[in-house]
Each structure stands twice: as structure tokens, then as C-alpha cells.
Design a protein around this nucleic acid. Structure first.
Lengths: 217, 217
DNA sequence: TAGATTGTTAATCGATTAACAATC
DNA sequence: TAGATTGTTAATCGATTAACAATC
């Protein structure tokens, strides 16, 4: 069902965080950085950072630190963000619009090249420079312009249909923001994003801090 | 720095996922559900589900299953989503707008009651029914209307200042969508959301599936 | 050489998975 | 009673943390 178990997932998820900080340092002209400093600005333990960075295959200089540009390179290559990946977007609601307008994707090599929606009133509309097409057209469109990724921002009820269309169109990965579990062939990887998960975590932490008793009011 | 280690975090993050599915079942009139069926529709192992649900303190009937409304209740109570939590939003860019327009928050008891931005051209604008106020006004505003949560959707460069204002205003938790680590007092919990983390995971999984060689093109 | 940091190897901790007795 | 599922107890696996030798 498009599932795949891999190891070091927590480290992998932290890599973009390093990347942001390192790019900032690079812009500021910082050439070398050592773990203790990264630990301070990122609020992580030194050993976590060393282990995470080791994953990318980069090597630092004992007693000195890591070369910032080399580190950036290693992370970008490890995540395969060096060559841009193209994606199509299904569902131009508020979240879909936000993703279309998010300039940060350029940094990480993601390009949303087309957007689709099933609402006739949205079709033809231009959103952040892309003209919204009819959802039903995504299959034929992908035949003409094959892209490896699909992003699903439609309401839960329509998500499986959107996924089916993307799969039929030949995408290899789906980034799913809808609140449902999608069924796909084994060779199509689905990454589900549950925004509410973060809020659940925050909520429980606040409760614990409060002594477990009172709700958030 | 607003950090806090708690256990069973993976389970906690999965709870909203169950909640979505269970509410759907409830709407469809399903009164009882057993683990094997949940496992099928959610693409999780049975034992994972039993352990996760046990966390909420709910108890099922051996040989039968769980009562759906009871389960919903237990999760909602465990997450403290039974009483609505109010939040203010800092930064009405594309992501901020998306969150203001997201109807799903009502389901999970989150209410964004005010929105602030530092861009003069946005101040006074109405976004999804809320009038945008000047960022600098958030402190005084919070004095008049204390709320427990702040959401940060400003660009990275302004995030720490936004956090400082929220902390001064007395919020107890911050949901941070900016790409920086925030410094806050120990009793203010920060939940950082790194959207790119999911993309990193997807990217690595696709690479592994590909045999590790080729990039996403 | 002395000081600092890297990177390896081992220890701990917690999450996931398995097995099964208890229960409807 | 037989069949099914829950919930507990134990086993496995992997992530985090600690200690330290190697290196600049």
C-alpha cells in the first residue's frame, strides 16, 4: 500500500532543519561550524547532530568542525534535493493555494508545475502564476508531461480518487495532506502529512506541564 | 527553551488519525469497531492500534471490539480537545491565510481568534472573517483577551520577535511553522512544524526504492 | 604539545512487535 | 461451547545517549 520501512527516519526528518540553519550561516559568510555551536542554535544535543550529519557521509575535521558549504552539499545530495523534482498539485483550496504560493520549495528543489481542482468555478483561475485545470484532466496531462510527484490537498472524500488519477498518470510518490489513508500500489510511496499530529503533541505536552489536570482554556 | 520530553510521542501523533476515521465511521452509523477492521482501513498493524488506543484509557469488549462514540470521546479527552482552545496567529502570508481558512480546526477544538501581521498593507484587511491587526499590537491585545496558544507563520527572520511578543503576552504554547528554532522560557512549550521533513522522508524513500542511485527527475 | 572536536564503539532507553492468557 | 478480540507480559529492534580513542 505504498508503505516502506526505512531506518534513521528521525535523523532524516531533522536534516532539513540543519539545512535551513546552515544556509543562513553560509549567507552570513560563516565558513566552518562545529557541533557545539550548532547544538546551541538548534537546541539539540551535540551527539544527535554528529550522528545525523554522519548519515550524509560528510566528514569534519577533528578539533575544528565542518565546512559549511560541504555540509550543505552533503545534506542536499543525501536528500536528492540537488536536482529539482517536479510535482502536480490536486486541490486548490486554502492549503493548496498556500503550497502554490510557498517560495521555500524552490530552496529544496520542489517545483509545482501544474494545479488541478474539481470545482468548475476554480478551473481557469490563475493561482500564483499557475492556471488551475480540471481534475479529470490530470491523467492526460501527466501522459504529456510525466512528473514523479503528486501532492494531494483535496478534501478527504475526494482524496482516494485523486490518488488513483495520480497513480494512473505514473507518479512515483504522493505527498498526502488529506485526512485519509490512501490505497496505492506498492511501488508508489505515499507520505501522509497529519498537521493535527503536531497540535496533538503540543496539547499533551501542555497538559503534562499543567500537571495533567486542566484542559487548554 | 520550551523543550519537554514525553513518552509515547509516536502514539500521540497517531491519535488524530484514528479520530478522523472514527468520526467518519460514527457519521456512517457504525457503532462498534474492532482492531482488525481499523487495521485494514488505516494501514497499521493491529497491535499498534491496540497499544495506541490503550493509551487513552479506553477499554473494549474482548471478542467484540470498541464502541465508536466511546473511542472518540476517549481520544478527544486524552488530547484535551474537548474544550475549545483559543489561539492567535502571527503572520498572514500564504500559510497563515491557509490556517485561518482551514475548517478542520473546528473539529479538533482549535479556534484562531485573532491574526496579526507586520506588513502595513495587510493591516485592516479581512481574512476569512478576521481583521488583521498590527504585530506590535499583539501584546496589548493579549492583555485584554488572554489566550493559551500562539501560532507563528511569519518568515524565519521575524519569528523570534513574534515569539517574544507572544511570550510577553502570556501564551503557554507556540505552534511554530517558521524555519528556525525559537528561544522561550522553559514553561512555554514550542511545537515546531517542519513541513520539509515530510518531503525529506518521501525523497529518501523514493531513492531507496529506486535502488539508491538516481535522483528524482 | 595542549586544546578541541570528530567519529567510533558500547550502554541505555523506549518503541515496536510477538505470544498468549483473559474475556466477551 | 466455540470463535473472536482484547489487553497483558515478554522479546526484539532501533534510536538516543554516553564514553572515549583518534585526529586536527
Amino acid at each position: 500500500m505504498g508503505n516502506l520501512k526505512i531506518r534513521k527516519l528521525p535523523s532524516i526528518r531533522r536534516l532539513p532543519t540543519y539545512l535551513y540553519k546552515l544556509k543562513e550561516m553560509d549567507r552570513d559568510g560563516v565558513g566552518i561550524v562545529a557541533t557545539p555551536e550548532l547544538a546551541r542554535c538548534m537546541n539539540l544535543a551535540e551527539i544527535v547532530i554528529r550522528k545525523d550529519l554522519a548519515l550524509t557521509g560528510v566528514s569534519g575535521q577533528p578539533g575544528v568542525g565542518y565546512r559549511v558549504p560541504e555540509l550543505i552539499d552533503a545534506i542536499v545530495r543525501y536528500l536528492k534535493w540537488d536536482s529539482p523534482a517536479e510535482a502536480v498539485l490536486m486541490g486548490v483550496g486554502s492549503l493548496g493555494k498556500a503550497l502554490l504560493g510557498y517560495s521555500g520549495f524552490a530552496d529544496i528543489g520542489l517545483q509545482i508545475v501544474a494545479a488541478f481542482d474539481s470545482d468548475p468555478s476554480k478551473i481557469g483561475e490563475s493561482v500564483h502564476g499557475r492556471t488551475v485545470m480540471a481534475s479529470a484532466a490530470v491523467g492526460p496531462w501527466l501522459k504529456m508531461h510525466p512528473v514523479p510527484l503528486g501532492i494531494i490537498c483535496v478534501p478527504a472524500a475526494g482524496a482516494q480518487e485523486a490518488a488513483d488519477q495520480l497513480v494512473a498518470g505514473g507518479v512515483r510518490g504522493i505527498w498526502n495532506f488529506a485526512n485519509v489513508s490512501l490505497v496505492t500500489p506498492d511501488d508508489v510511496i505515499v507520505q501522509r502529512e497529519v498537521i493535527a499530529g503536531g497540535l496533538a503533541e503540543l496539547s499533551v505536552k501542555l497538559g503534562v506541564l499543567n500537571g495533567g489536570g486542566m484542559p487548554l482554556e
